[in-house]
Amino acid sequence: MKNIVLLFLVVLSGGTLTYSQEKPDNFDLYLLIGQSNMAGRGVPDDYVLNGDSILVLNAGRQWQPAREPIHFDKPAAGTGLAASFAMTLLPSSRNRIGLIPCAIGGTSISAWKAGAIDPATGKRPYDEAIAHATEALRSGKIKAILWHQGESDTQPQRTTTYRTDFEKLMENLHHDLGITPGSIPVIVGELGIFPHEGNHHEGRRKINEVLHELACRHSYITCVSSAGLNHVGDYTHFDTASLRELGRRYAEALTRYTTKP
């Protein structure tokens, strides 16, 4: 048994299909952080994931075959961008894909620092992301960080500090996960700007400007457009079709980054 390089045992535990490992596999890991549009609030559909090649680190920090909802932040968690992101990458991936879902709906960027507590859920977004990612690193390497957040920081006093808050967050993540700064891509996504919304989108437009500024300042950051995407009816959350498209855009941005000269 000790000479076996890899052994995956499928275990039925409490109704959840999980994978136990004798030795870690060489997963391509992706850390998914931010708030509800990263976690996903889309209506479930019949989208099919390859559960043999795409795994998710669940709330118990065990690997299980990918299925939606990927996130588990709140009961409202539904379809998100992670599934189409992973499926778009899969044909060109040499390894299994491991998704690390750590987004928490409603969180301000101020909650994404060590020790900070999200008052709505009582969770510690940053600390939990570090704990989940550290466990995942036993099974592979983090290939990219995916971030979608900002809806909770559209007030003028917050948009003015968003850039420095984000840069500090990335500095902390790299340090606490042992990642060389700038060595992996960070993909961020624009907030939705929807027609017929009136003036309520101005704060989100400012956050989008900051996201593009970050991408200009740091070569490892890429900002994905939300142009043409639709909402579920609340002018905040992307609908299912838009989340599928946004996931593909994240994957395409990552591919362009990793193949550029």
Rank of each mutant, 00 (worst) to 15 (best):
G198N: 02
C216G: 12
S226E: 07
Y235W: 09
F238T: 03
T222I: 00
R217Y: 01
G203E: 02
G198H: 02
N208F: 00
E213H: 11
G233R: 09
S226T: 13
Y235S: 12
L229P: 02
N199K: 10
G228Q: 06
G198R: 03
V224T: 04
G198K: 03
G203N: 03
E197M: 11
I207C: 09
I207M: 09
V224A: 03
N208S: 04
N230D: 10
R204T: 00
C216Y: 10
E209L: 10
S226L: 08
G233A: 09
G198E: 05
L211Q: 12
H201G: 15
L214G: 00
N199P: 08
T236I: 15
E197G: 14
H231P: 05
E213L: 14
D234L: 08
I221L: 07
T222L: 01
N199L: 13
D234K: 05
H218L: 11
R205T: 03
H212F: 13
I207W: 04
H212E: 12
A227G: 13
E209K: 10
V224N: 01
L229E: 02
N230L: 10
L211I: 12
K206A: 15
D234V: 08
H237F: 09
N230T: 12
V232T: 15
T222Q: 08
E197P: 01
V232G: 05
F238Q: 05
D234W: 07
G228P: 05
H237S: 05
H231D: 15
G203V: 00
G203A: 02
V210K: 09
H212A: 11
G228K: 07
D234M: 06
H200R: 15
V210R: 09
H218F: 11
C223S: 15
G228D: 06
S226K: 04
A227Q: 14
G233P: 07
R217G: 09
R204V: 04
A227T: 13
S219F: 06
N199D: 13
H218M: 10
E202Y: 14
Y220A: 00
A227C: 13
L211C: 12
